[in-house]
Design a protein around this nucleic acid. Structure first.
Lengths: 207, 207
DNA sequence: TGTACATCAGTGAACGCGCGTTCACTGATGTAC
DNA sequence: TGTACATCAGTGAACGCGCGTTCACTGATGTAC
């Protein structure tokens, strides 16, 4: 039966949300359209009324998942200006590592995206650039803009790599997994502090 | 028919090699046992004479792929002692990024391994620890052993993240992808130089 | 060394299953008059 | 405002297909005598 415009929008949103979470948890190839539709309270036919293919849904789900994670990074500390350390503590936390379904879509899917079609890569790239901007805003305004961007690019990719490596080693060695998170937090903290003009780099004592 | 011991070992090796390459190129869920067997010059039944399941083959293929990549990192410069810069230039190169099938299995599969069973995670962890050791050997002997290990852990995860992020963005924005590699190479180079005792950190001019 | 035979890697047909996608149909919505 | 009807999101059966795995069988290898 036909359905109100409002309901249509709700259903589409439910499909995207369900897909985003399931793709993060089990990978794009690891979940079927039947399960996504079911979790959104619909049948698979409804999915094809909204999206031309599973791949199109994947692109939209990744875009949504990435925007949501980035929004959380910035909204979390409303009021005060977030520092790089704030972002590192949140992103490179064991909570984030252990929350595959609820966490950043880039960390959950980085190596998979390389094998997906262009539009999925576009969604990744947009989210990545956005996170680079968030990191860049926390760096002191020393050096040229190009240097700051370059540094932010590397820090962002390192954050993603830190979470991905911590997750990949978690089942085999929880201790190594924790160590990776701690080591990456400390390294990037130093790197960020370094960007500050002439400030004597403090010995980082964070656990 | 029965087959000589030598031939059995050859066939097993061919299966592992074919699986390792295909898994890197298309993901574990993206390739079937039929194609792996065919590429090894066998039928899928032969695969099950050697391995109890596709998953067991995946674990062995990852272990092999990781060991091979690490071997290449060290063997490449036989004779002289490799520096951190040598490793960074090789690992964070556009050639490595563009050679999904032939490159490092950890960069190709990092985010996928998180969803695989324990034995796959074990293979990742072994390879990761090995690469950490390779990196650690290039760092100056300043600071405590624990500090050097921590730094190597972070550098290794960052290298993997750099290649994974560069690959994920390559289809959408080749320029961004290149920038990520350059930025990560420069950042980690600085980080490595820093570890040297009291040496004034040189401005890094590598392209 | 020569012969008889047990072993077992490899073959290829077959298994049930879930995949992504299509399609005839339904019926409440939203529009035209 | 009330009525007639076109629209189209959603349903659920059906499609062909390739998946991972099993199994009866083959026949050269390697062993026991």
């Amino acid at each position: 039966m036909k359905v109100s415009k409002e309901k249509v929008a709700q259903n589409r949103e439910a499909l995207v949300q369900a897909a985003a979470r399931l793709f993060r948890e089990r990978g794009i190839d690891g979940v079927g359209v039947a399960e996504i539709s079911k979790q959104a309270g619909l049948t698979h036919g409804a999915l094809y009324a909204q999206f031309p293919s599973k791949e199109a849904l994947a692109a939209e789900a990744l875009a949504d998942g990435v925007a949501r994670a980035n929004g959380w990074m910035t909204a979390r500390l409303e009021g005060r200006e977030p520092t790089l350390t704030d972002h590192l503590d949140a992103y490179l936390s064991s909570q984030h590592r252990d929350d595959l379904g609820g966490g950043c879509a880039m960390a959950a899917s980085a190596s998979e995206v390389a094998r997906q079609p262009r539009d999925v890569s576009v969604a990744f790239t947009n989210g990545f650039s956005q996170l680079v901007g968030i990191i860049e805003r926390t760096l002191a305004k020393s050096g040229s803009a190009a240097e700051r961007r370059q540094r932010s690019l590397a820090i962002t990719a390192a954050m993603i790599g830190g979470v991905a490596a911590a997750r990949a080693s978690a089942k085999a060695s929880p201790a190594l997994s924790d160590d990776i998170l701690v080591a990456m937090r400390r390294l990037l903290d130093e790197v960020g502090a370094e960007a500050k003009p002439r400030a004597k780099r403090a010995r980082v004592t964070r656990r």
